[in-house]
Design a protein around this nucleic acid. Structure first.
Lengths: 243, 243
DNA sequence: GCTTAGTGGGTACAACGTACGCAAGGAGGT
DNA sequence: ACCTCCTTGCGTACGTTGTACCCACTAAGC
C-alpha cells in the first residue's frame, strides 16, 4: 500500500482494501529499522539490511515505504510509542513537563540516532501528534493561549533532547569517566586533553578538571538544569494563570 | 596534510613542513561545502561536488580531509566563525546569553543542515572551543561553579538551536503563512490540515487556527520564549551570585 | 473462471565514499 | 648545480547505496 495516491505516508491506508494481503507491516518494519540503527548507527542503516532483517527482498520494502526518509519517519514515530500508555500524575503541572522531558532524554540516550532521524521525519506521525495532544491537554489552563501552550511543550522537549545529545557528545569526548567504547573516542579524548593543557582555553581546562570529580551524577545534573528551565516557565505562567 | 599521524583533524597541521605547498586550504574547502549544502541540502552534498566546486579532482580533497565527516566538521566550525568578531556588551549578563541564542538561531535558519551536520562534527573545532571560552569568560562571576557556567551556555544554545529547527519544521508543515517552497511542503500542509479537521486532535486544530493569525512575528515569538528560559536561569543564579 | 488490484522480489543503474597507486613538483642538503 | 624524498594532485576502481522498472504470482469480487 505505498503505490497509491498520497505523498504523505500517514495519509495512505496501511492495509489494502482489495487484492493480496501484505506479508509484513509498518510496525515490524519500523522495529527492524530501529534494531539495525541501534546496532550500527544511522549511517549503517540501509534498505537492504532492514529487508534482510525481516527476511524480505529488498524491493519489497518499497511496498510499505516510498523512500528511506519514510522509513525513518516510521522509526521515529514507533519510538515515541503510544502516549496513552505514558505514566504520571496529570494534575501536577510541572510534573507533566518533567515527564515529557525525561521521555525525550531517554529516547535520545537509548537511540543516539534519534535527533538526526527526527530531522528527516517530517511531517509528524500519529504518535507524535497524539503525544503533543496529550501534553497540551494535561497542561491546558484557562488563560493560557494555545500557542503559548505549544511553545512550552516544545521548549521543554527540545531542551531535553538537546541536553541528551550534548551528553552523548561529551561522553564521546571523554568528559565523564564513563566507559570508552570506540577507538575514535580515544583519539577525541586525547585531543580534548591536549587542548585543555595548551593553556589557550582556561575555562575548558577548569571544566575537564571538574568533570573528573563530578558533584552529582548525570541524571541529577539533568534534573537540576531541567528545574531551572521549568521554573522560568512556571514563574511566567503563574503571573496570570492558576495552575 | 591529512596523511600524517593524528586521527583528529584539528591536531594535524594545515600546512606541511616539507614538500610541495598545497593548492587548496581548509577554509576554501569548508566554504565550498557550505555553498553546496545551502543549495542542495546535506543529502545532495558529495565529495565529488565539493571538489568540482573548487575545480579540483575528487580525490584531492582527501589530502585535506580524511573522510566526509571531517569535511562536515570543517563546515560546522567555519559557520561558527571567529568569536572574537562577535558584537555585544559583555557587562550585560543576560545580554550575553541573548547574543549567544540569536547567533545559534541564525546559524540554523541560514543553514538548515547545521544541526544534523553538528551531530557528525565531533570533536568540537577551534572556533567552537573559542566560542565556548568566549561565552564562559563573559558570564563568569564569583560563586558560579564552572560546570554550572558550562550548562548555562549549552542550555541556551541548544534551546535556540532546537527552537530554530522547530521553526523550520513548522514552516515546512505550513503553519506560518510563509512562502511555500517545495512540492513536498504542499503535501505536508494538506496532511496537517486534514488531521486538524479530523477532530482527533482538538489542540492541533486550535493551534493551526491561531497560526493563521499570529499575535506576533517569528522573531518576537522567539525572543519571548528565550526570555522565559533566561529568566529561569537568572532567578536561580541571582539567588547566590551577584551579576 | 476471469478480471484486476495488489503483492513479493529480481535485475539494473547512477551516484556515492574512498582505497590504491602513480606521476610530478618543490624544498633541503650537498 | 644536483640528487633525494616527502608531499601533492588526481585517475582508476571497487563495494555499497537508494530506488526505477519489470515481471510473476496471489486472492478477492464479479
Amino acid at each position: 500500500m505505498s503505490g497509491s495516491e498520497d505523498e504523505v505516508i500517514w495519509l495512505r491506508p496501511e492495509k489494502p482494501t482489495r487484492g493480496k494481503a501484505p506479508a509484513y507491516n509498518r510496525a515490524d518494519i519500523a522495529a527492524a529499522g530501529v534494531r539495525i540503527a541501534d546496532a550500527v548507527g544511522l549511517d549503517g542503516l540501509s534498505m537492504r539490511k532492514v529487508a534482510a532483517e525481516l527476511g524480505a527482498g529488498t524491493m519489497s520494502l518499497y511496498r510499505y515505504v516510498r523512500s528511506k526518509d519514510e522509513l525513518l519517519a516510521l522509526m521515529v514515530d514507533s519510538i515515541l510509542g503510544d502516549p496513552e500508555s505514558w505514566p504520571g500524575d496529570y494534575r501536577d503541572w510541572a510534573g507533566v513537563l518533567r515527564l515529557c522531558a525525561h521521555g525525550s532524554r531517554t529516547a535520545v540516550l537509548e537511540h543516539p540516532w534519534f535527533p538526526v532521524a527526527s530531522a528527516y521525519a517530517n511531517p509528524p506521525g500519529p504518535n507524535m501528534l497524539r503525544a503533543m495532544e496529550h501534553m497540551m491537554a494535561a497542561l491546558d489552563r484557562p488563560g493560557l493561549r494555545i500557542d503559548e501552550l505549544f511553545q512550552i511543550v516544545t521548549t521543554v522537549m527540545t531542551f531535553a533532547q538537546g541536553y541528551a545529545q550534548n551528553e552523548l557528545a561529551e561522553r564521546a569526548a571523554g568528559f565523564s569517566a564513563g566507559p570508552v567504547e570506540e577507538t575514535t573516542t580515544e583519539a577525541e579524548k586525547r585531543y580534548m586533553v591536549r587542548m585543555a593543557e595548551s593553556g589557550e582555553y582556561p575555562f575548558l581546562s577548569r571544566l575537564i578538571a571538574e568533570a573528573r570529580t563530578p558533584h552529582q551524577d548525570a541524571d541529577a545534573q539533568f534534573d537540576a538544569m531541567l528545574d531551572w528551565v521549568i521554573e522560568g516557565i512556571l514563574a511566567r505562567v503563574r503571573a496570570y494563570v492558576d495552575l
